[in-house]
Write a protein that binds this DNA or RNA. Structure first.
Lengths: 243, 243
DNA sequence: GTGTATAATTGGTCTAGACAACTATACCGA
DNA sequence: TCGGTATAGTTGTCTAGACCAATTATACAC
């Protein structure tokens, strides 16, 4: 591996080192539980300041790929936690990650005045319009759940039925300079309603998973509320928690 | 506020600045969406290097309390996301955070040979012993759920029925130098079983929330598996996701 | 007024050191 | 053999600068 650092690149040196370390971990140059070279060693190897190496390592520690032990060294963390099922993922991304083929059927797509609850979640004054989208979500052509999505019209005035078939998140990150930040979600179990049982082809005494998620841009401004109902017998919600 | 920085304290300067900024945000000295003083200003105010100020701010940016805009400044993020419902919390911490009084009743406390599934989750060879703890979890003296906990005996050989009444997490963080890292969890909905309905005082056609959580130390080693069943009518699982 | 060039300010990256705190090891003496 | 001690290597913290890139404020010309 002749990975070299290009000091004149517009890519920051610490990013390049970060990438190099990630690839070395992936290629098992540094194995799980083993130490990587010390910060001083790396700073000599790449001919950069130790602080620059530290910035690269700190990022990888924050993302859970490495961990430090004072006086001992820096080690490769167990990849079980790394990234696979963490983070904010759309239904489509989620299903693909599980090896299933996602599809959707749009039942409704319209502008409405939302309830006060939804308006409050989105930091909107009462009476302001939102897009209201209802979709059946399928995995391998079997219905998995129903999603009700609310998005402020003034955030995405040109949204239409075509665009929501692609990645909404990518759309939003492209439109604003900002990235999508965090989300807060509430998860409950309940019995299926009559309406839902029809769409999901369930018997009326089945349990379902209800998820309500509010997603925020990195400046803390909410851009989406999603209320979902998933079949309990086929959908498992998996997430990672960081302390 | 005459918050001063003690350069001779054993508490790092950046931690002190971090604390000062957090308190200033809390006290609305810097309001939501407003900018905090520039890094150069703060470094003069505290008479420290700008890099030290940056370390403090970087931590607050990573924890979502501030966000930066190049060429403009650093701003206070919306606190809705801040910390309240995030992170790995024990049932007790969780209930207290919701303003309820938690209590527990231990139904079983014993050493067993776990199933292969559990052993695998805990990185144990087949046949290795674990503590098996079954508890009824109450909030304001009403049963909220049942928890089945599995902990490798060799990790906590001196665990007993008294100790688990306190904070298990604090116990573990004290015992090992390591801190508790992340957790991976699976959440499902189902109908209550006959046995559970008895303990939770539920009718046999009630929905319940099933949560399985594997918790890891910061080096990626698992130390606990918890399988929980919560009443759907009174328990709502709330979490925060970071992208 | 309306642009436009320029300056000032901000966060982003980087350097070349320094000392502290902690860990492991080798060695020495009782 | 055991226990202390020096030593070297590690990460943790901090300094006092430097230049870059993006944004904003200012002054000036038209």
């Amino acid at each position: 591996m002749h990975t070299k650092i290009d000091k004149n690149s517009r890519i920051p040196i610490y990013s390049q080192i970060e990438e190099h370390l990630k690839q070395s971990i992936y290629a098992k140059v540094y194995k799980i539980g083993e130490s990587i070279p010390s910060e001083r060693e790396l700073s000599i190897q790449f001919d950069v300041s130790r602080m620059t190496v530290r910035q690269a390592i700190t990022n990888l520690v924050n993302s859970g790929q490495l961990y430090r032990e004072k006086g001992r060294g820096t080690y490769v963390a167990n990849p079980k936690l790394e990234q696979p099922m963490t983070g904010l993922r759309s239904f489509s991304e989620d299903m693909i990650a599980r090896g299933m083929k996602p599809s959707s059927k749009v039942l409704r797509f319209e502008k409405i005045i939302p309830t006060l609850d939804i308006a409050n979640d989105l930091f909107l004054e009462p009476g302001v319009e939102v897009f209201y989208i209802v979709r059946i979500r399928n995995a391998d052509n079997k219905p998995m759940g129903i999603e009700h999505t609310y998005i402020p019209v003034r955030l995405m005035p040109d949204l239409d039925e075509q665009k929501i078939l692609g990645s909404l998140y990518a759309l939003i990150e492209g439109k604003f300079q900002q990235k999508i930040g965090n989300a807060v979600q509430q998860i409950e179990a309940s019995l299926v309603t009559k309406d839902e049982s029809k769409h999901l082809k369930l018997s009326p005494t089945s349990a379902v998973l209800n998820i309500k998620r509010i997603s925020y841009l990195s400046d803390g401004f909410p851009f989406e509320v999603v209320e979902s109902t998933y079949r309990a017998d086929s959908y498992k919600f998996i997430s990672e928690i960081k302390r």
